[in-house]
Design a protein around this nucleic acid. Structure first.
Lengths: 205, 205
DNA sequence: GTCTATACAACGATAGAC
DNA sequence: GTCTATCGTTGTATAGAC
């Protein structure tokens, strides 16, 4: 599960020690710090002590490296979400906890916000990834709201599909507003509170 | 002196006479096509038939060009919105019309979605612009929802500020989902319908 | 003022040697 | 598996022609 990152292997020769996992770790960190487009392969490579063609041997392109980072990040988030569900938490609670966790990692939030927007372009290397991801996230929300509807808890006139899309949209849109107020903590919107307000709005009165 | 830079595309207007407005026009179009970061100054310059240092004489940097493009786009949208209001349309109708207009210009939508995300980074050249823009848009929505509240039309327990932020977030978030389904028109969410559903959800039952 | 020409450092990517 | 060397392209800066 957890990759042993940053533990320097002993040996007289510092170079040639970079593994796939070490590169992934450094890339995720740098992407989170400065964003995908600003980050350079040379900088990632330098952080793990190899040349940038050396890095490209493990990941054939910058886009491939990005894809690998996204997949790993997703696995971590998904595991935490499923663990919350398995621990008996409701869908709403588990979702709120994901949001709250992200609030302490602005770098990753910015990475996802920027990427999901730039990946809307059909030619983008992460386009298919985000299409699949949105379908998964929306579908899960649809399932939840279908349960609400069956129990009479969904607002009349609102179908589960629309409720799901609106809720996912609120999360994405609030991320932008949250990120844009990084330098004004007082005016910063509360992501979890916004989610609760939205869930309340789509609920039956 | 004829400038021979650029490809002989359309002989509509005389080459070598590129004005600020022509550059702005070409830049807006290219940014909308491929995004800000992918677009190159050389390509913009080529489209108006000048060299790229020639372009830099009018706009000292790529960021300055971007700022000018955003300001002009905003003026156009703002004028249309105000014209709708002046024509007696309600706020909700005017807002819906902006959305519907944008649905026919996916390039501009993608430009704004991408930019508002990448401009969340404090060092981005358009950071201040988007901060100001969001404050303006949210404030206008707050004003509208305060009216709703005073007339008893706002959902109880929901304050105008939160309702405004949620609504703006829905518009931004739905744009992502809309753009991501560009290659599947059947599954494409209806932006205007989503806005109406959201406004319905924040309304008093 | 309006431009062309040229130079520069940094980028992603490739080729080929150990 | 990792290196050095190199390619084409980018944003930017400067010099200088009209």
């Amino acid at each position: 599960m957890t990759t042993e990152a940053g533990s320097p292997r002993s040996g007289g020769y510092a170079r040639g020690r970079a593994t796939r996992a070490e590169i992934l770790d450094a890339a995720m960190r740098l992407f989170g710090e400065v964003g995908y487009r600003t980050a350079s392969l040379r900088e990632v490579a330098a952080r793990v002590g190899i040349s940038h063609p050396g890095l490209l041997h493990h990941f054939p392109s910058k886009a491939a490296l990005l894809a690998a980072v996204l997949e790993r990040r997703d696995e971590v988030d998904e595991a935490a979400f499923q663990a919350d569900l398995a621990a008996g938490h409701e869908y709403v609670e588990a979702l709120t906890r994901v949001i709250e966790r992200n609030a302490s990692r602005p770098g990753i939030v910015e990475l996802y916000a920027t990427l999901s927007a730039e990946a809307t372009s059909p030619g983008h290397p992460a386009h298919a990834y985000f299409q699949e991801r949105y379908r998964r996230v929306v579908d899960r929300a649809v399932g939840e709201f279908e349960r609400w509807r069956d129990e009479g808890r969904l607002r009349p006139g609102l179908d589960p599909e629309t409720a799901a899309r609106l809720t996912v949209a609120v999360l994405d849109g609030m991320q932008i507003q949250w990120l844009l107020t990084a330098d004004a903590p007082d005016a910063r919107p509360d992501m979890a509170a916004a989610l609760r307000a939205q869930l309340n709005a789509v609920q039956a009165p």
